[in-house]
């Protein structure tokens, strides 16, 4: 509780006070205070305040359109924000010094389809100032060594998205932000990826992973639940089950949403 107690209370009109994140009261990697993002007249993120624990997997969950991608873009520093502060690894988000330490895997696979897998990873290694050997090691880590010479565009969906992951890993990021990395993958591959994410966290990498599939929440240490640009709650999967009085995370999340909607109606 200690470091969280110092945070100012968020504006109650927008967001409920975040619950204790997860019992992971260790060092934090990202601190977000009063983050607001407007796009035109619409509010994409309304006053988000939270801390993201270092060396853990933080899941960013919510229905589509809830602001997950915008939140992640703000962490990486590519999103123009309207208000608030986002501190990543002790520096403002988007600080040039952070570019070596923050990896970003976008929702769309963003690699060069007309380059071989190895050439893709080598290029991203080069722009991080890495060596040529690193690329091979990273390919082995994501299980793509056998496909090194294949054109990225000729791979199957699952392999293709792992090329994107490899291109982010090659910079050895301290914070890895991934936008729905497991969407559309088969269950075996999903389980495989979550294992790799856990291994990365065990090595000390902070992971922020978005998903709209609630069953994946069980793999995370801490959960940020978003709805319509509001941070409903920050808690552990266990706390979510407890609050929702069910083992089904999806049902628990639904109940939480219904509760918050009811609360909104009462105040209105």
């Amino acid at each position: 509780m200690s470091h969280r107690a110092a945070l100012p209370e968020p504006d109650p009109r927008f967001a409920p006070v975040p619950a204790d994140p997860s019992g992971t009261n260790g060092p934090i990697s990202v601190s977000v205070e009063g983050l607001r993002v407007h796009r035109g007249k619409s509010t994409v993120l309304a006053n988000i305040t939270c801390n993201i624990p270092a060396g853990r997997i933080t899941g960013l969950l919510g229905p589509s359109g809830s602001g997950k991608t915008t939140f992640m873009r703000a962490l990486v520093g590519v999103q123009k924000i309207s208000a608030g502060t986002v501190t990543v690894l002790g520096r403002p988000a988007g600080d040039p010094l952070n570019r070596n330490d923050v990896g970003y895997v976008t929702q769309e696979v963003s690699v060069y389809r007309d380059l071989s897998v190895l050439d893709n990873v080598r290029y991203f290694s080069a722009v991080h100032g890495g060596s040529r050997d690193e690329a091979q090691a990273v390919l082995a880590a994501v299980g793509l060594s056998d496909f090194a010479k294949r054109k990225a565009g000729s791979l199957s969906g699952g392999q293709f998205s792992r090329v994107s992951l490899a291109c982010a890993l090659v910079g050895k990021p301290k914070l890895l932000v991934m936008d729905e990395p497991t969407v559309g993958l088969d269950p075996v591959l999903r389980a495989d990826l979550w294992q790799q994410f856990a291994a990365l966290a065990a090595e000390g990498t902070t992971l922020v992973i978005s998903s709209h599939v609630m069953e994946e929440a069980g793999h995370c240490d801490s959960l940020l639940l978003l709805r319509e640009g509001l941070l409903l709650s920050q808690l552990t999967p266990a706390q979510l089950r407890e609050n929702g009085q069910t083992d089904d995370l999806e049902l628990a999340f639904l109940r939480l949403i219904q509760e918050s909607m009811a609360a909104e109606e009462r105040t209105a």
Binding site: V78, V102, T106, S110, V127, G129, C167
Partner: peptide, 12 residues
Amino acid sequence: SGTLERLLTTPI
């Protein structure tokens, strides 16, 4: 393709 945005998050 998103590669430009990605590149601009790296030190290049």
